[in-house]
Amino acid sequence: MFVFPRKRENLMLLDDGPPGSFALYHESGWIQKETFILWFKKFIEFACPTAEKPVLLILDGQTSHTKNIELIRVARDSYFIILSFSPHSKLYKDAVFRAAVPQTAVSGFLKTGIFPFNRDAFPDHLYVPSEGPGDDARSPVVRTDEFWQPELLRTSLPYL
């Protein structure tokens, strides 16, 4: 989601944008309560939380996030847990400044095999087939006795 500092929509601003991106407009260029709710509803579709697997969302304490009753209602109904730091929290600022350094980006590229390129960065067992686009992504995976054999998996996946 892009928030542009404009009063009127301009679709050309999204030309060559990432697939699935969308734009919202506000004269300040900052996210507002209403626009944050729109983003959050899109994020729910992406995260697919369930009662068994809720999602923790950590927020920075901006009022569009913290003083938003609709956000709290939607989060509760969608199995989200919201942790919000106060706007001027030293803990939050320390964590962000510690994480937002060039070495974090370099490590991320290295670990994922992006740079330097490493086609073996992820072992084969991590490429388990997922559900197709027509399947209900929120439903748990059903394992049958003939497929699910933990003793076989433990021999090839020592961390199970």
Rank of each mutant, 00 (worst) to 15 (best):
M1S: 09
M1P: 06
F2R: 13
P5M: 08
K7V: 02
N10R: 12
L13V: 04
P19I: 10
F22S: 10
E27G: 03
E27I: 06
S28K: 05
G29R: 06
W30V: 05
W30N: 08
I31T: 15
I31N: 07
I31L: 12
E34M: 00
T35I: 04
T35D: 09
K42M: 12
F43H: 13
I44W: 04
F46M: 11
T50F: 02
T50Q: 05
P54E: 01
V55A: 01
V55Q: 02
D60S: 09
S64R: 03
H65D: 04
E70N: 01
A75Q: 02
A75L: 01
S78I: 01
S84T: 07
P87R: 08
D94A: 13
D94L: 10
V96S: 04
A99Y: 12
P102D: 05
T104R: 06
S107P: 00
G108K: 03
G108Q: 09
L110W: 03
G113R: 01
P116M: 08
F117M: 09
N118A: 08
D120A: 11
F122G: 00
F122H: 08
V128Y: 11
V128D: 04
V128R: 13
P129I: 04
P129M: 05
G132H: 03
P133H: 09
R138C: 13
S139E: 15
T144E: 10
E146W: 07
F147L: 14
P150Y: 05
L152G: 09
L160M: 14
